[in-house]
Design a protein around this nucleic acid. Structure first.
Lengths: 337, 337
DNA sequence: GTGAAAGCGCTAACAG
DNA sequence: CTGTTAGCGCTTTCAC
């Protein structure tokens, strides 16, 4: 498996200079006479020399690669963040080692360890449940780790996300204000803080504001799949829900299709407000009203934050909250979302 | 940036053995007395030693990481393949460096080079247009490279995909047989061989079989976006197309929604057959009939093939074609797809 | 079964 | 502006 044949020695010899000089021109060190620089560059070109990044990493203790832990690339929400991450990473000359975790705590810990073993300069973690073991690893690591589109209630780790609680609070409040008294809350697993401590909390706040009693029957905990949403129709109608806030777009699309297919038309007989404003919201019919959030930017800003951390640059705010908003589309009735 | 503090020396000293022995136990070399193995393992555990993969890579010339070039993670089709790739990679203890190329030839070449500089053990390339420059890099590289869900007409590179030409041929033939004489062909850029030399060729074959003249007016070349499909409605009706084969699901969703929103109902007045059978086909209304292909498996098999190539294992067939099929859903009329 | 020693290819002082 | 010299942390013969 000869991947690399020509080394820095070869070009040094060919160019009649020392390897230190070759290293300098390769690294753009200005302390090289233009003439010798050109000479070296020519040899590099002729020999098709390509610096071995592994050797470089060993000597410099920097690999210019960052690890990215993602629940599932196949989920458009996370994929959108990943795209933002990769673009900024590339901009700053970093590469990304991407690994799917399936939100499995054991896998997350294991994956983090192999990333650290590979000496990544930093890691971006996406996932909604930072288990105690994972948290312990985070704390132990001297490598910067930032959370993207994810929250850890302890707020002890750098992160980039939106104010989920406030967003849901406001979104549900708007539905309530329009007279929907039986607004269901549909989300992924409630053992994920993002669902329980943020979204559900926001939902409860909205209820409280409106003077409506919290009814546990209206809370539906499922997994994030389309099918799970689709299958919710019966349960939803059984409790006379007339609207729903849903924590994930694919899940919401399932709920909507399930309702419509059962003859309960959205939005006339049932309103839906979803959470992530992914392109899915535009593709389904009716289009879904949604909380809006800058998906790409969450990833991009997280990566940018990470670059600062990796370079020990000062960071004013380690827990950045990006702005959210609302779009009114076909799954809700009012003309003000 | 002290990422790593304890080295193999430390554990060797602590355990009272040589670093060679530590290396042996770490690598599962059987030539170590159980007693010393245990002793070493204990120290490793106590010191929380984690082998430095970079040093390992330099010494062994293997990094256990493979590069993956993907057009865009945000595209559900490619993301599905990527998931298959990562799962199998993980199974074989490899990690993935993922980079988006946007199908930009210059970027692809550049990205491939940085991957090779990072000494990846292999690379998986997804992309539908292997430019001459890229091809030259492929040929020059001694690192195995396999194409996944992509084709290179020269068939000179290992690859895993389906028989696009035959699939389209058969799909269009079925529509034709049902009396749709004006079947449009909608695809991404025709400078991509997958669209011109495979899909369009299959379309033409079907036409020829049915004794229908090829009408260039029915061929629509766009980009792969939802919006591009949506905007096609006028052009499609202008040429009296009564059905369409579409080369991408998101694009197809656009075409379908564009038609329906314009009052031309699918499938009653316009049939649509799409290509990738991603989950999008189930989420839209009506659901879309599609060519089926084992997305996850294409990625998985490609990665498996790559592992063999990386280990110099014999490979019977370097260009594997996985089976395709058809699903009849709501966007076509017949009861036999 | 275990140790000593020579690199892997490059960066980073330190001289000059 | 350029060369010398140590390593970086680990794998891998080659002896014993």
């Amino acid at each position: 498996m000869e991947k690399q044949t020509v080394t820095i020695y070869d070009v040094a010899r060919e160019a009649g200079v020392s390897m230190a000089t070759v290293s300098r021109v390769v690294n753009g060190n200005p302390n090289v006479k233009p003439a010798t620089r050109k000479k070296v560059l020519d040899v590099i070109d002729r020999l098709d020399y390509r610096p071995n990044a592994v050797a470089r990493g060993l000597a410099s203790k920097k690999t210019t690669t960052v690890g990215v832990i993602i629940p599932d690339v196949t989920n458009i929400y996370f994929a959108s963040l990943a795209r933002g991450i990769d673009d900024i990473a590339m901009m700053y000359k970093y590469n990304i080692i991407l690994t799917n975790s399936d939100e499995n705590s054991g896998k997350e810990v294991q994956v983090l360890n192999t990333l650290l073993a590979k000496q990544v300069d930093g890691v971006i973690f996406m996932g909604n449940n930072v288990s105690p073991e994972l948290k312990a690893e985070f704390d132990r690591s001297r490598t910067p780790i930032v959370l993207a589109g994810s929250v850890d209630p302890t707020n002890t780790q750098p992160s980039v996300s939106i104010d989920y609680k406030a967003a849901v609070h406001e979104g549900v409040a708007r539905m309530l204000k329009r007279g929907y008294k039986r607004v269901a809350f549909v989300s992924g697993p409630l053992d994920q803080p993002i669902n329980s401590e943020y979204r559900l909390a926001g939902y409860k706040d909205a209820l409280a504001d409106a003077g409506i009693d919290y009814d546990e029957q209206l809370v539906f905990e499922t997994d994030y799949s389309y099918q799970a949403g689709y299958d919710l129709q019966e349960a939803l109608t059984a409790v006379d829900a007339t609207a729903a806030f849903v924590g994930d777009d694919e899940l919401a699309a399932g709920v909507m299709n399930g309702m419509n297919d059962a003859g309960i038309s959205v939005p006339e007989q049932f309103e839906i407000l979803t959470s992530n404003d992914t392109k899915l919201t535009e593709i389904v019919r009716p289009k879904m009203s949604s909380i809006t959030q800058p998906l790409y930017d969450i990833g991009a800003v997280a990566m940018r934050l990470l670059t600062k951390l990796m370079n020990n640059e000062p960071v004013e705010n380690k827990n950045v909250l990006l702005p959210y908003g609302f779009v009114k589309r076909g799954s809700t009735n009012s003309n003000e979302v």
